[in-house]
Design a protein around this nucleic acid. Structure first.
Lengths: 212, 212
DNA sequence: TTTTACAATTGGTCAGACCACGTAATTCTC
DNA sequence: GAGAATTACGTGGTCTGACCAATTGTAAAA
């Protein structure tokens, strides 16, 4: 895969060395990597090449650098890969419809996923959301959804949802205010697996509130 | 979103400037970006900072640099990002699961979306897929899916699906071969809106073939 | 006109300098 | 001796300048 004839760029070789190092030493999230200067010496390459490798991995979300402290391995699940891709994928003024539509797909997937939780877990989740609502932390329907999907267990999907949410919010009007009755409505729907209401909650949540 | 107090690292600001430049000038795949030295001057930053930004975007697969020629925008679909992430993530089981799961959500959404097409459109679509199969262009189930989702009308979702597909492909075994019977099975299911089969096609397509 | 040689441009890499930030060791103060 | 202030060191952040290597464009030579 990696061409050996037309020799690799130095910064890429550093990336590979780092990978080997990480595997060999069983490094995991939070662990510290050698300093730029040390790596530079150990690998006999310029510090700038090491930095290029580090910057690339940083933009990928694989490492984190803290000024004055060092460079650390990051929890890969936090990768902001999504933001990055979003920045470039959505560049061409993509149809807002596509964004909104895909957002709903993820919502449906997340809701379905949560349906597999047991009753006590669901109860606990909704209770904490109600508390958040009463404390004024959750004020819009999308805040509500965010809390739900964050707990759905698929972090990647949640990240993507957040990006789509941001994009959607920019183009459309302000997010609708949250009625506490809606929380209970959704809770009931989840506990009884009422797919009709769940679907409506994803596609047109405001109608659920007006119906009240 | 982007912190303005603790000022951004220079290389990140370059990334943002590039993004703006790409949007403003409507640059697309294959177009050339300014040289490192020119950017360095124009943005009043060191060339090394420009290089850090370029290297990062290169590792992401968003640009391509050719020695002696310059730096060019790349079709994002060519990203070797998957290899990169896989290289660092593969030991993490959860990430894989998230990818596969979200891939299925998009598939379900795309299929549902296509259900709204009229019969003649669906017929035309499947006919062209059959032709592609007979010409040896579509050989795996995922090729089949790709053809479907590409036509689903939501380009954003299709792009994301491609990313997830690549990611999934490198972690799991080879994609299953496509049986032409499966095409007809799915076609029939679409025309009759048989959600059970459609769901199975998204989640466990091979079982549909074994059943034949 | 075609070919060849050379100059200019561009990326690739390195070395060194200096600043800013954190931390740990040290010194000072009480 | 304990705590607070200071200092020294290590680290990332950034810039500059230098040189090499690949490519392209141009001008001279055939």
């Amino acid at each position: 895969m990696t061409k050996s004839t037309a020799q690799l760029k130095v910064y890429l070789s550093v990336v590979h060395k780092l990978k080997e190092m990480i595997q060999r030493d069983r490094l995991s999230a939070g662990d510290r990597l050698p300093s730029e200067r040390e790596l530079s010496e150990r690998l006999s390459v310029g510090r700038s090449s090491v930095r290029e490798a580090f910057r690339a991995l940083e933009l990928l979300g694989l490492i984190e650098t803290r000024h004055g402290e060092g460079t650390f391995l990051r929890d890969f699940r936090d990768h902001h890969l999504v933001e990055l891709l979003g920045m470039f994928i959505l560049q061409n003024g993509q149809a807002e419809k596509d964004v909104l539509e895909m957002k709903i797909w993820i919502e449906m997937g997340s809701m379905n996923r949560m349906l597999q939780n047991d009753v006590s877990t669901l109860n606990w989740l909704f209770d904490s959301i109600v508390t958040g609502y009463q404390n004024g932390e959750i004020t819009t329907i999308n805040h509500f959804k965010s809390s739900l999907f964050e707990s759905s267990g698929n972090r990647l999907a949640y990240k993507v949802w957040l990006v789509l949410y941001d994009f959607d919010r920019m183009s459309s009007k302000e997010s609708a205010a949250l009625d506490i009755e809606l929380i209970y409505t959704v809770k009931k729907a989840m506990l009884s697996k009422d797919m009709t209401i769940i679907r409506t909650f994803c596609t047109e949540p405001v109608t659920l509130q007006q119906a009240k």
